[in-house]
């Protein structure tokens, strides 16, 4: 796609792209290049010199049981966040879509948590489940359940998943509702006339027609769970207990800034880079395909 009508000159356009080029070069390409470069070295303990180790950092990481555990943690965490937030959003969107009047009121009531920062969501959920003052943990105690996400790995994971999924329901709801409303009413009514009950209509007509939205949301939510939930983890569990909630992005931070292990942290960055790259390509391929339909 190109414009047929263009202006003449080359100095002006170069000046126009210069600000973006400068910011991108200094704050993007240089650091990204550094990450790749550093991933090939191990600094000595005094930080004076580094030793070239080739792919040594990567070999070490892939053999490191903590790193592999963090991969598994991330997979479990992002699957659960995606499942919980998309499941809840789909239920709400299906309900709202059944209304002739009032769907937009519910939309207004449901979309604003999108604007709540993950870190703030983390503090809110931490407060409810706090082992000392939390309301929900207190009532759970009344019921005879001793909630303690500080010690219990499963409960810690459950809490960070719910806190991360909470604000995300809004986003998924918005896209699911738009997807549902774009399905022609006549198709659904035809099925209803043929005697298909709600569940049958949903399974055989609505859900398949919704699959482009669902696929798009799957990718976007996985990216969200991978990279944007740092605030939730940091405020609620700091990766604990026993690294049970140390997702990959948290580990880059913990090893690079807290542990000062720059080579390993850089290698982890490069691995993450490959993961995001792959997800982005999947997303673009999908959009391209959709454009052709």
């Amino acid at each position: 796609m190109e414009k047929r009508v263009t202006f003449k000159g080359w100095l002006l356009p170069l000046l126009l792209v210069a600000p973006q080029l400068a910011v991108t070069a200094v704050f993007f390409f240089y650091p990204a290049g550094q990450a790749v470069w550093q991933s090939l070295f191990i600094p000595d303990p005094f930080g004076l010199r580094s030793q070239f180790v080739g792919l040594g950092n990567f070999e070490f990481l892939l053999g490191d049981s903590y790193y592999r555990a963090s991969f598994v943690t991330t997979a479990v965490f992002s699957s659960l966040v995606t499942l919980v937030s998309m499941g809840a959003a789909l239920c709400l969107a299906v309900l709202a879509d059944r209304l002739i009047k009032g769907a937009s009121t519910y939309r207004t009531l449901l979309i604003w948590p999108y604007a709540v920062a993950p870190a703030v969501a983390g503090v809110l959920w931490l407060f409810m489940f706090n082992t000392r003052v939390g309301v929900i943990s207190w009532y759970l105690g009344l019921l005879g359940y001793d909630w303690n996400h500080v010690l219990n790995e499963g409960e810690a994971m459950g809490l960070v998943v719910v806190a991360s999924a909470w604000g995300r329901v809004s986003y998924n709801f918005l896209f699911f509702l738009a997807g549902l409303q774009s399905i022609p009413r006549s198709v659904i009514e035809a099925a209803a006339i043929d005697g298909a009950r709600f569940w049958t209509r949903f399974r055989t007509i609505v859900f398949p027609l919704l699959s482009p939205t669902t696929f798009f949301l799957l990718v976007v939510n996985i990216v969200y769970a991978f990279f944007e939930t740092f605030g939730v983890i940091h405020t609620i569990t700091s990766g604990g207990p026993q690294q049970a909630t140390t997702i990959l992005v948290y580990k880059v931070f913990a090893d690079g800034f807290v542990g000062q292990d720059l080579g390993s942290s850089a290698a982890q960055s490069v691995i993450l880079l490959i993961v995001v790259g792959t997800l982005t390509i999947i997303q673009f391929k999908y959009i391209e395909r959709k454009v052709h339909y």
Binding site: G33, V252, T280
Partner: peptide, 20 residues
């Protein structure tokens, strides 16, 4: 060049960006 930047959130390059 610009297109490439779509692929890398700041979370991934924190240490070197911090150094810059």
């Amino acid at each position: 060049l610009i297109f490439l930047t779509l692929m890398l959130p700041v979370e991934v390059r924190i240490v070197p960006t911090y150094e810059v």
